[in-house]
């Protein structure tokens, strides 16, 4: 083992200052969410009167959550989002795996030109309006949930991550299966995908987060409120201030209740993610690393 050189005073002061700085950073990262949580449990009229730091709920109540639970839009938004995330992530991962499989195999004559075609789209795109006209006026996908999936089906970045994962698999595995007479598709599903599961996990998560967070597409293509995904409903409540209708009929207290409803809505939409991400972060980190190397 290494010999510990006696730590100097300056060294120790550095550690202490650094620790304090890190604790400060953690507070800055966490406090906004803590504030939201505490505000969501607070009595709305007390909350209205309160300004400044909030450390614990003001007059604890679950009223805001009761209102949120009664909001049919939020429930349908959640269901739509779950549907889109589920179907979207599955199809995206499947199609990306098919593409990455061919792109990582050596004998394919169009590999280079195809790769160039894909990478080019990372730096140049047709833009917002031509995309809108194509999807809406030509393919008639407007107000169809498919418009939230099909145009976002493959991300070049994810395809590169998966191709890198596939390339790391030794050829010998594939060749022995080929000698047994296995076809390409069998090799992909029986050998390549199971072996490359860590990379598959990375792109599953990337796609899932992408579908979960996306709101703009739904806001321009969807006209039917019952088909709005969660983020569009959230935008109505949080950004466009449409909480008044939820608080209506609560004894003229609508404005006050609206305030805490917003915080409760943030909680309902965010807590599931915050509970999951610490366990999955290593896959995300791995993805950025592969992406950074391969660009």
């Amino acid at each position: 083992m290494k010999k510990r050189i006696k730590r100097s005073l300056g060294d120790r002061i550095f550690d202490i200052v650094n620790t304090i700085f890190m604790i400060g950073m953690m507070i800055i990262m966490l406090y906004p969410f803590w504030y939201v949580a505490m505000a969501s449990f607070s009595n709305s009229s007390h909350l209205m009167a309160h300004t400044g730091i909030l450390l614990k709920p003001l007059d604890f109540t679950l009223d805001a959550y009761r209102m949120v639970a009664k909001n049919p839009n939020l429930i349908s938004g959640y269901l739509n989002t779950i549907l889109i995330v589920g179907v979207g992530t599955f199809s995206s991962t499947l199609v990306t795996a098919l593409g990455a499989f061919v792109m990582s195999r050596k004998p394919f004559p169009f590999k280079r030109i195809l790769m160039f075609m894909m990478i080019f789209t990372m730096y140049f795109s047709g833009g917002m309006i031509p995309t809108y006209i194509l999807n809406n006026n030509w393919l008639h996908l407007g107000n169809n949930r498919l418009v939230l999936i099909l145009p976002a089906l493959v991300t070049t970045y994810n395809l590169i991550i998966l191709r890198t994962g596939f390339e790391a698999i030794p050829d010998s595995l594939e060749e022995s299966a080929k000698l047994d007479g296995a076809k390409d598709i069998t090799i992909l599903f029986k050998i390549i995908i199971p072996v490359a599961m860590p990379s598959i996990a990375v792109i599953i998560l990337y796609y899932a987060v992408g579908y979960w967070n996306s709101w703009f597409e739904a806001s321009i293509y969807m006209t039917d409120r019952s088909k709005y995904p969660l983020q569009v409903i959230l935008r109505e409540i949080l950004i466009m201030n449409s909480t008044a209708e939820m608080g209506a009929g609560e004894g003229g207290n609508a404005v006050a209740i609206a305030e805490s409803i917003k915080y409760a809505t943030v909680m309902v939409a965010t807590v599931p993610i915050l509970c999951i991400y610490p366990f999955l972060q290593k896959y995300f980190v791995k993805g950025t690393m592969i992406g950074a190397v391969k660009g």
Partner: peptide, 20 residues
């Protein structure tokens, strides 16, 4: 196997480029 990816890029990535 490669067909879905190629179709995706032609329709949804190069389609709008042509449309521009």
């Amino acid at each position: 196997i490669v067909l879905p990816v190629v179709l995706f890029y032609i329709i949804f990535r190069y389609g709008p480029m042509y449309g521009s």
